[in-house]
Simulated scan of single mutants.
Amino acid sequence: MAAYRNSLPQLEGGVFVTDGGMETTFIFHDGLQLPHFASFVMLASEEGRDRLQAYYRRYLDIARKHGAGFILDTPTWRANPDWGKKLGYTAEALHTANVAGVSLLAGLRGRYQDANQPIVISGAIGPRGDGYKAGSMDAAEAEDYHSVQIGSFADGDADMVAAFTLTNIDEAIGVARAAAARGMPCAISFTVETDGKLVTGRSMQDAIETTDAATGGSPAYYMINCAHPTHFSDAFDHGSAWTKRIYGLRANASRMSHAELDDSETLDAGDPADLGQRYRELMLKLPQVRIVGGCCGTDHRHVEAICAACMPELAHA
């Protein structure tokens, strides 16, 4: 059953860790082939499910070591209708995959969670199109489109949903409305370019304030992911209401732009220690942030470095 759907513990204080760059880890470190960058296809085999569990356990152990809670995001970033069709999945098969993703994590939660380590299961949603390009849907179309996947999560044990690498404000509004219609708390995570703005040229302030205005503030919180801290560290208006809505950071390991990452055939893993220190600097400026993890190019080394650098400040904030 959904343990925290009516009361997300990460909104009540404490520190929560999440994983790193799942797809880049499996492709570049483990040598797996993930068609269309889709990790949810691994749910279809016993070997794939075992690999996924081993991947999550590494991060769960880091959280336990540091006395933190954990956000378990399902491996379903690509498990929406358009991408599913490209991968040969019917609507029924896609629903099965989304449900299976939640079930896998429910099993992990049962083995790891204790009174000192709340573990939240979050249904991961990706954009309809490319996570590095602007989408073209309006809010109504986005609500209709994403309601399918959100419905799969709502019918299972997911506590919430989180939409990652969104580049279009209308799509964020649609996701938030679809989640609210199914009674699911949601997090909205925007991707920004090297100038700290969305690919459309709109600012994070505009994105958050517009989404909140159009949805009655229904998102539980916002996050930033798939950008290096140097790309967005100067984009905050510290102390402003919109900045205080940002609760989580999942940065890239690399300082490269999205265009450069797209063209690269090798993985730029950056410097885990430097990334940890950059998180620490952000945490001191953004005391409301409670969720830390990684995105493209990051792995357990980066998340461990982030926890080691930031946890003392977060634990006593």
Rank of each mutant, 00 (worst) to 15 (best):
L198Y: 06
R202M: 08
T90G: 08
Y145S: 03
S203K: 05
M204S: 00
T211K: 04
L166S: 01
L198D: 01
A172I: 03
A140I: 11
V199M: 03
I169D: 00
F164I: 04
G110K: 10
G88M: 08
G201M: 13
P81I: 03
G101I: 10
A179Y: 07
G84L: 10
D82I: 02
A158I: 14
L94R: 12
D138Q: 06
A124N: 13
N98F: 14
D170F: 02
T165F: 02
A179E: 05
Y145F: 15
Y132G: 01
S189A: 13
H95D: 13
G183N: 05
G123V: 13
A93E: 15
T167I: 00
G107K: 13
D155H: 13
S189N: 09
A163T: 04
T211M: 10
D138A: 09
L105D: 07
Q117R: 15
I121R: 08
D130L: 15
L108S: 07
K86Q: 15
A142L: 07
V199N: 00
F190D: 04
L198P: 02
E92I: 07
V192A: 03
S152K: 03
S122I: 10
V99S: 07
S136R: 04
G156N: 15
A158Y: 09
I173A: 05
G126R: 13
I173S: 02
K85Q: 14
G84R: 03
G123A: 07
G107M: 11
D155I: 06
G151M: 12
A179S: 14
G88R: 13
A79G: 06
S147I: 06
N168V: 02
A187I: 15
P118H: 10
Y89S: 02
R182P: 01
A180N: 05
F164P: 03
A176S: 15
D82A: 09
A142V: 03
D130Y: 06
D206P: 00
S189K: 04
M184L: 15
T191I: 01
G129A: 02
N168A: 07
E209C: 04
A139V: 10
L198F: 02
A97Y: 12
P127I: 03
S203Y: 06
M184H: 08
L94W: 11
L198V: 01
L166G: 00
V175G: 06
T210K: 09
A140Y: 09
F190S: 01
G183W: 13
I125M: 14
A213Q: 12
I119Y: 10
P118F: 12
I121P: 11
I119P: 02
N168M: 08
D206Q: 13
L166D: 00
D114S: 08
M184A: 07
T194L: 08
H146A: 10
Q205Y: 01
T90H: 12
A181M: 09
A213D: 09
P118A: 11
F190K: 02
G183V: 12
A178W: 10
D195K: 05
V99A: 15
D130C: 13
A79Q: 10
R111K: 15
C186D: 03
T200I: 01
A79S: 14
G196R: 01
G201N: 08
L108Y: 08
A91S: 12
G84V: 08
R128N: 04
P127L: 09
E143L: 11
A139F: 06
